[in-house]
Design a protein around this nucleic acid. Structure first.
Lengths: 219, 219
DNA sequence: TAATATTTTTAGACAAATCTAAATAAATAA
DNA sequence: TTATTTATTTAGATTTGTCTAAAAATATTA
């Protein structure tokens, strides 16, 4: 059975995320995502091609093969199960889990992950609201949209945040927006894309387009 | 704060184990322990010396510095906490935990380990009966002796097994000896060092000196 | 469509961790 | 105490993953 180095796993996972379903990924895109140089990406793509993880022809971008996709889903499964564990069992806060899970995800013992899954009672979503693939690699399509896309007067629940920088989390905290927060868009300003939100019985608050594009809600 | 590669951590841990307290460790010893070549050990020792983890002069063997010992104890802490977790929470059997913990021990987030410790309710011994260092690196001196050293007619509890090869575990299984088994030595044969044991109400069983030297008991 | 800009790849270098083979130091035996 | 054996180190090579600088391919724009 094919095994992968930590670096290979990180590349596979990044390609999966950048594909957004079925789009082809470019060298520069992947280099940016992984904070590395385009030349390094080319090197790695040759290796992943040899391992039949991606389809790749020079200058043409790359896509995961079915095998590659399955590998990516297993890495994501590990990552999200550990995030759930950290949050649920070790009381890590929402914004702390990602960094630690980035390391834990590379421990690839299959029994470990399946037993962990069972111990956690087969959770379906991680603390950011992202779906957790099951042992066979099946993943739920979650009905998530950016808050900026939410229709006026429709109630939705915050389930995910794209950018998880400290600045972002500071702002969310200030606005009292957290995972699970129920909210409703009361007005959209076309001029700058800012929104007026209703959260519970609080007075309406205003958020920028930039923030709204980074908050995902489940409808 | 100094960080270590997985390979460096494995070397530090192995030196700690081979020191048995305060003995100096040789190049060949360490090479044998890590299934690597003496030349590779020399390379690594130069690096660890530069990081002030060991005392080392060419041809003179090596010993951990106080800093090195502390580092080793933290790695061992992680290892044993994960072993406890695997055994206690994920129902891994006693002989499966080591291999997985060898990987998990290199995830070095301090908060993770301290929270895990708390979640497990601060266990003092891992599933093999080895003591778990606390957050400050303190480690209990466990009152363990080889079964071959146990006095006649003194009840003791199996708490550790030195050699954990499949052959060894197969033999233990056959003899119905497991961690936590209460037993008593009823007779010692000086000729070959074999022992007659009483386990509960079962008929007496016989074990070889070699086996007795590899089973540790708490008195 | 020719010129320019951008993207991607190639060529060659480097650090980490390991190896083999040869050289050297230390230990042991004659 | 000299010769031999054993242990350790050095020298130089290899693999993996990365880099920079330059070349080549592709895309864009005038």
């Amino acid at each position: 059975m094919l095994t992968f180095s930590i670096s290979e796993e990180n590349h596979i996972k990044a390609i999966y995320h950048l594909q957004h379903g079925d789009q082809s990924v470019s060298t520069n895109q992947l280099a940016a995502e992984l904070n590395t140089k385009p030349a390094s990406i080319t090197d790695m793509m040759k290796k992943l091609k040899a391992k039949k993880i991606i389809h790749y022809e020079a200058y043409k971008g790359f896509k995961l093969t079915p095998e590659g996709r399955k590998t990516a889903l297993m890495i994501i499964r590990r990552h999200r199960l550990w995030e759930y564990f950290l949050s649920e069992k070790l009381q890590f806060s929402w914004d702390e889990v990602h960094e630690v899970a980035e390391e834990l995800e590379h421990v690839s013992n299959e029994k470990l992950i399946n037993k962990l899954d069972e111990f956690l009672d087969f959770p379906r979503f991680d603390p950011h609201g992202d779906p957790i693939p099951d042992a066979s690699g099946k993943i739920e399509i979650s009905r998530q949209i950016a808050l900026s896309e939410l229709a006026i007067n429709k109630v939705a629940v915050v389930c995910n945040v794209k950018d998880q920088s400290a600045d972002m989390l500071d702002l969310l905290n200030h606005k009292s927006i957290a995972l699970g927060t129920k909210l409703e868009v009361k007005k959209k300003f076309d001029f700058d894309g800012s929104l007026e939100l209703k959260i519970g019985k609080q007075p309406l608050i205003n958020i920028s387009r930039q923030l709204a594009e980074n908050i995902y809600v489940k409808i």
